[in-house]
Design a protein around this nucleic acid. Structure first.
Length: 552
RNA sequence: GGCCCCGUGGUCAAGCGGUUAAGACACCGCCCUUUCACGGCGGAGUCAUGGGUUCGAUUCCCGUCGGGGUCACCA
């Protein structure tokens, strides 16, 4: 009995690895093309950190004419969640980041390097495990969880490194006959990798992001195939990224310390190792301390949160890209209208330490992103959002022509307004342009400097009777407000008012405020001239008259 | 605890032996022929700490402290 016989005993039906090597040949891509993947587990919603990794991975692949694929790592069936894959696929779609290859629904996939769902690749892993077994580079281990726990305790008491290595690796030195015997007796077992490493030797790793990192070699005989026949992450990573011809593994930096193991696995399997880029996680401030954004505690950790809040996907991507490469910001300033894809993203420029998540900055980017949209785009997107999350708004937006006019106010100028940072802001921003909302609310009107009732109604009355003409152009319209100010005895210029503070009680801006408040019930709105145009004469007069009445 | 990573203003960060230590968000002030917003100008605010090395350290080395990761039949 030798290793070969043992391998046959364990995996009698596994194919030769040459079969898979031929089935998944090197990719025929242009020089320098980078192949990356996003490889989440279907264990719940997509985390913002996951989206971040996916964005980075996709960006470098796109930039180099490579491939970005989605592989689902569902080797832990206990943690699996219903419709987990759908959630992942949809989240990527929401951010316009659909993969070139991989899963596209719960059961379907595209691409020639699949299956892209690990639970469907059992045969492949077993073929490679068999390959290692044949060479004596792997062995079955019969230790029970209880035994493992016991050795761990012993190690702890003796203040030794915990784990399955050296003298603690009991099954490592079983004879082939003993192993075969136990298997035939029906004992449960897993397959372990027989590590050739030594803890007292160093291994050098050059990470694209972290730079040079030296570790002790791995000497742990880690499990590669679990009792259920499925591989562990480490083994699946080596086999899959080799067969799928991944060139760059971009993943969260919690994997950094597994690099010695992974490199060893690639080596012993006879694979060429990919390049690694370990991304620092996105953090959050927690009572003065930093911690990773947590799925349980932080709603903003879930990518769906941004969708619900109506923060444009584009803004989230820009924000993330900004964390990834801070030069993005300057590039964006210089190229306000270019597509994100045109930015020359540099993997090696990514920060080595984790960034604190900054919602305020994100919302600021949201404002800029939305300010650049046309009225039509704003309309479509806020309607899409409203249909899902705000019925009332959806109802308001039914009258498309009118909504377009409202969204068109001060839009498209060289200096567009930036007052909407997310779709959830839209309603309160346009509410007063809708009569049922405007009249439906009882509220104290925030008149400011000019607050005496008689003056207010006098201004409004005068304006309607003497000055207001719907056909005026903007200059005439404003000249009339000035004339009204003069007639009321207020300063016609703010400058003049400031120069002679004792001389006037108020100025033209205060008169405008009275009109604005009467017309919209608020003190800050976009350009009043445009608002009045959109409202139209009848509605303007009606609103003003109502205030005259209220102030008489 | 072992191993590994990190530490520039409130936040994201450029800089990598000699700089008035960029820029962005936030904050404050001023300006911009109506408010708000935008925009412009200006302001406050930073190299964790102690030792080296050096003519000179934010930049290099070591220690300390602080933060993070990892040590599963989870990924």
């Amino acid at each position: 009995m030798d290793y070969k016989d043992l391998a046959n005993l364990i995996f009698p039906d596994a194919k030769e690895i040459s079969y898979y090597e031929e089935k998944y040949p090197e990719r025929n891509l242009p020089e320098g093309a980078i192949v990356t993947r996003f490889a989440p587990s279907p264990t719940g919603f997509v985390h913002i950190g996951g989206l971040y990794q996916a964005l980075v991975a996709r960006t470098v692949a796109k930039k180099t004419g490579g491939v970005f694929f989605l592989r689902v790592e569902d080797t832990d069936q206990k943690r699996e969640v219903e419709n987990g894959i759908t959630g992942i696929v949809n989240s990527l779609k929401d951010f316009d980041m659909a993969p070139d290859e991989g899963m596209i629904s719960e059961t379907e996939e595209i691409g020639n390097y699949g299956p892209y769902k690990q639970s469907l690749r059992k045969d492949i892993y077993q073929a490679y495990a068999k390959y290692l077994l044949e060479q004596g580079k792997a062995y079955p281990c019969f230790c029970t969880p209880e035994e493992l726990e016991e050795t761990r305790k012993k190690q702890e008491i003796a203040k030794l490194r915990t784990g399955y290595y050296g003298v603690w690796a009991k099954c490592r030195n079983l004879s082939v006959e003993e192993m075969a015997e136990k298997i035939k007796n029906g004992e449960n077992y897993v397959i372990r990798f027989k590590s050739p490493g030594r803890e007292d030797r160093k291994i050098k790793h050059k990470d694209i992001i972290k730079g040079n990192v030296d570790f002790p070699e791995n000497d742990l005989d880690i499990i590669i195939i679990k009792a259920d026949g499925l591989p562990t992450y480490h083994f699946a990573h080596a086999v899959d990224d080799h067969l799928m011809r991944t060139t760059h593994v971009i993943r969260s930096d919690e994997w950094l310390s597994s690099v010695p193991l992974h490199l060893q696995l690639f080596q012993e399997l006879g694979f060429k190792a990919p390049k690694y880029a370990h991304i620092s996680p996105i953090m959050k401030n927690d009572n003065g301390g930093k911690r990773k954004l947590s799925k349980r505690k932080d709603p903003e950790a879930a990518v769906d949160y941004y969708k619900k809040e109506g923060i444009p996907a584009e803004a989230v991507k820009e924000y993330l890209l900004n964390i990834a490469n801070s030069s993005f910001e300057n590039w964006r300033k210089a190229n306000p209208d270019k597509e994100i894809e045109e930015f020359d993203f540099q993997l090696n420029k990514m920060s080595v330490s984790g960034a604190l998540f900054d919602m305020i900055k994100l919302l600021d980017i949201g404002k800029t992103v939305i300010s650049k949209m046309t009225a039509e785009e704003v309309y479509e997107k806020s309607l899409d959002w409203a249909k899902q999350y705000d019925e009332e708004l959806a109802e308001m937006l039914k009258a498309k022509e009118y909504a377009l006019k409202v969204f068109g106010i001060e839009r498209g100028n060289k200096k567009p307004r930036k007052d909407i940072s997310k779709w959830a802001d839209v309603k309160q921003n346009i509410e007063y342009m809708y009569d049922d909302k405007f009249y439906g609310k009882t509220q104290d009107y925030p008149y400011q400097v000019i607050s005496e009732k008689e003056n207010i109604s006098k201004i409004l009355k005068l304006y309607i009777e003497k000055y207001y003409d719907e056909k005026d152009d903007k200059q005439t319209w404003f000249d009339k407000i000035k004339a009204l100010s003069v007639e009321m005895g207020y300063a016609v210029e703010v400058k003049e008012f400031k120069a002679n503070p004792g001389k006037y009680k108020a100025h033209v801006g205060d008169v405008s405020t009275v009109l604005r408040v009467a017309l919209t019930s608020r003190t800050n709105t976009p350009d009043m001239y445009e608002i009045m145009k959109v409202l139209g004469k009848d509605r303007v007069v009606k609103r003003l008259e109502k205030q005259i009445e209220a102030n008489s």
